[in-house]
Design a protein around this nucleic acid. Structure first.
Lengths: 345, 345
DNA sequence: CAAAGACTTTTACACGTGTCAACACTAGGT
DNA sequence: ACCTAGTGTTGACACGTGTAAAAGTCTTTG
C-alpha cells in the first residue's frame, strides 16, 4: 500500500496534530474525546497506516481483555464445536480468545497455563486432558485467575467451577431408552483417557442396576487404535462379532466416535443395526457428533448442549472476573442431554 | 501454592541476589550466564513463584518468536489436521503459534490479520476463506511480513508464496481411475466457497476432455445446507436419485464431506455404491478425511499430504524470515495427491 | 606479585502505551 | 469585558523487560 507506515503514537501525534494521550484515549473509547478531535483523528488515520502496538497496550492495563482457552484435541468435532461456541460467546462479551491445544500432552498443557499467567489473561477456561493431566496445573490457575473447568471434571478436584453435561442424566435416558426398545444394553467403553469415560460408565451401571439388570461392559482393554476412538470401537466389536457375540444386542457406545467404529464393524459383518429390526442389533452413541445424521444408519444418540456449555462457561468466567474480591462459592452447572432418536436404535 | 509470588525481575533480583540484567540474560539463554549464577538462579527460582511478563519480554525484542495462523473453519477435520501439522512443525522450530479462526467471516479474517501485525508476529500463514475474502488483506500481510498462503489459492493473487495440493494431478488421477473402472464420472460440485472448489472442477473438466468424454457437473446450485458440505451432497443427490438419475454412475465428489452426504443419499435410496458392483453406482471423494476408513462403504478418495503441506508452509516461512532482506522470488509448492482405493469406487 | 582475561554488575536508556493531575482553552452567562 | 464551569489537552510518570557501554570483581597466567 502507498500509505506511509507509522509505528508509534508519538509519530502519529506529530503527524495529525493531536496530543499523544488524546490519541490513547481515542483508541480506547472515542467518546472520551471531543467531536472535533475525533473528526481530526479519523481523517488523519485515513492518510496513514497505523495500528497500536498490541503488547504495549496490554502491558500496563488492569485488564487485557483476553481469555485463555485450553482444549485437549483439535481432531475431534466435539471440541471444535465447543471452541466455536466459546469464541462466539467471548466475542459477544468483547473479549479476545487465545486458544492453546494441549495435543494430549500434559507438559504442553502445563506450558500453556504458564503462558496464560505470563500474559495476564483476565481468565481461563480449560477442558482437561484427562487421566494424564497434572491437577496442580488447574489448582494453580484457579488460585491465581478467574477459572472455569468444562466438559470433563477430575474427581479429586474441589473448589473449582465446572460446566458440563450431567452424565447421570444423559447416559441414564439413553440406557433407559435402549432397555425399553431393545432389551438391556451392553456398554462399549472407550479408553479411559478422560473423566467423562468413567462417569458414563458409572452412570450406565447405576441405571442398569436401577432397572434390575446386570451391567455388561466391554472395550475397556487397550486396543491399538492409534488414538482414534473410531478405530477402537471398530477393533473391539470386530473381535466380538467374529465370535458371534453381541450380534443381537443393544450396544451403548461411550461416545459417537466409538459408535462410528461400531457401525463400521456391524457393516463389515453384514449386520444392519437399527430400530426397525425387532429384537436385533442396535447401536447408540453419546454427544450428537455433527456427522450423526449422515451416517448409515443415522445414529441414535444423546446430544450434549454444546452451545449452552460454552456460553455458560464464559458467563460464569465473566461473572467471576467482574467480582474479583467476593469469595463466592464453587459453582457446578450440569446441562441435560437430549435424546436424538434416529435409525440405528 | 505456598510459594511467594514475585511479579517483576526487579523483585526477583533483590530476592536471590543476582542483578536484573543477568536474570534477563538467564531467561533468554542460560548459557550466557556463568555456572555459579545459573546455579544460584535455579535454586532461587525453586523458592518463589515467578514467570517473566509475556508482553514486556516481547515488546522491545527484534523477534517475538510467534507465528500467526489463520484458518477459515474449525468444524472441519481437514483444517484441524492441517493446523496440528503446522503447530507441530512450528514447535519443532521453536516458534509459538497463535491461531485465529475467521469463522467464514471476511471481517474477522481482516481483524485477525491486523492483530498479527500489531503483535509483531515474525510471520503469518493463512488458509484463505475463499471467494468472500478481501485480497487486500493478503497483499497487506505479504508486504509487511514473511507470509505464506496455504491450502487454497486466489487466482488473481501473484507474488505470494503458496503451499498446497496439485489439484490438476490429484483430481486427475481419481477422474482417470473412476473412468477406467466405472466409466466416465459425474462431478458433484460443492458450493464455490473457496478456490479449491473451482480448481477441482476445472481439473475434472480438463481430464474428461483429455479422455474424450463430456464433463457433467452437478450441485453447483445453492442448496440450503446450513453451511454443511455433507448436507449439500445429501440434498443434491437425493433430488437426482428421486428422479432415477445417476443411479448407475460414477460420482466424483468435490471433497469427502460432500461424499459423506452422497453416501447417505445412496443409502437412503437403497443403493449400494461400491467397486464390487459391475457397472453400478460408485462414489469417490477428495482429501482423505480421517473418517473415510470408517464409512459404509469405506470411501475411495485422493489423500492430500496434509502433514507435508503444514511442514512445507512453516519451512518456507522460516526460510523467508531468516533472510529478510533478500528479495527472493515467489515460491509455489504443489504436493501430489495419493489415490486411496477403498470400497466405494 | 602484577597484569590479563572472563564475568558480572551498574548505569542508563529504550520500547510503546496507560493514566492521572495539572493546565489551557472555549463557551456561556452576567 | 469578566468570571465560571466544563471540557480538552498536556506533562510527567509508570508498566516490566531488553540492551549496550562502562565499571567493577574475581580468577588465571606470566
Amino acid at each position: 500500500m502507498s500509505k506511509p507506515e507509522i509505528h508509534t503514537m508519538e509519530e502519529l501525534s506529530a503527524a495529525i496534530g493531536v496530543s499523544r494521550p488524546t490519541l490513547s484515549r481515542y483508541f480506547q473509547d472515542p467518546s472520551k474525546v471531543s467531536k472535533s478531535s475525533v473528526e481530526r483523528i479519523r481523517s488523519g488515520l485515513e492518510q496513514v497506516d497505523y495500528t497500536p502496538n498490541f503488547f504495549a497496550t496490554r502491558m500496563n492495563r488492569k485488564s487485557t481483555g483476553m481469555i485463555g482457552v485450553i482444549i485437549p484435541y483439535l481432531n475431534d468435532l466435539f471440541f471444535t464445536r465447543l471452541l466455536e461456541a466459546i469464541e462466539r460467546a467471548a466475542m459477544r462479551a468483547g473479549y479476545t480468545v487465545i486458544t492453546q491445544c494441549s495435543h494430549a500432552d500434559p507438559d504442553i498443557e502445563a506450558r500453556a497455563a504458564e503462558t496464560f499467567l505470563s500474559m495476564n489473561v483476565d481468565g481461563a477456561v480449560v477442558a482437561p486432558l484427562g487421566n494424564h493431566s497434572d491437577l496442580k496445573v488447574y489448582e494453580r490457575l484457579n488460585s491465581r485467575l478467574p477459572f472455569v473447568l468444562m466438559d470433563s471434571r477430575p474427581a479429586r478436584l474441589s473448589q473449582v467451577d465446572f460446566v458440563g453435561t450431567d452424565h447421570v442424566q444423559s447416559t441414564g435416558i439413553i440406557t433407559e431408552y435402549l432397555n425399553r426398545v431393545g432389551g438391556p444394553p451392553v456398554f462399549l467403553a472407550m479408553p479411559r483417557v478422560n473423566f467423562n469415560a468413567l462417569e458414563r460408565e458409572a452412570a450406565y451401571i447405576a441405571k442398569m442396576e436401577e432397572l434390575g439388570h446386570e451391567p455388561v461392559i466391554i472395550g475397556t482393554e487397550e486396543v491399538d487404535a492409534g488414538g482414534y476412538f473410531e478405530a477402537h470401537g471398530l477393533a473391539v466389536l470386530n473381535a466380538y462379532f467374529s465370535k458371534g457375540e453381541f450380534i443381537n444386542s443393544s450396544i451403548l457406545c461411550a461416545n459417537d466416535r466409538v459408535a462410528i467404529g461400531a457401525l463400521r464393524a456391524a457393516a463389515h459383518h453384514g449386520l444392519e443395526p437399527g430400530a426397525l429390526r425387532q429384537g436385533g442389533l442396535r447401536i447408540a452413541g453419546h454427544d450428537d457428533y455433527p456427522l450423526c445424521p449422515f451416517l448409515i444408519p443415522t445414529l441414535t444418540t444423546v446430544a450434549q448442549n454444546v452451545e449452552a456449555i460454552g456460553q455458560a462457561a464464559i458467563d460464569r468466567l465473566i461473572e467471576k472476573l467482574r467480582a474479583e474480591n467476593s469469595q463466592d462459592n464453587q459453582t457446578v452447572q450440569l446441562m441435560d442431554g437430549v435424546l436424538k432418536i434416529r435409525e440405528s436404535a
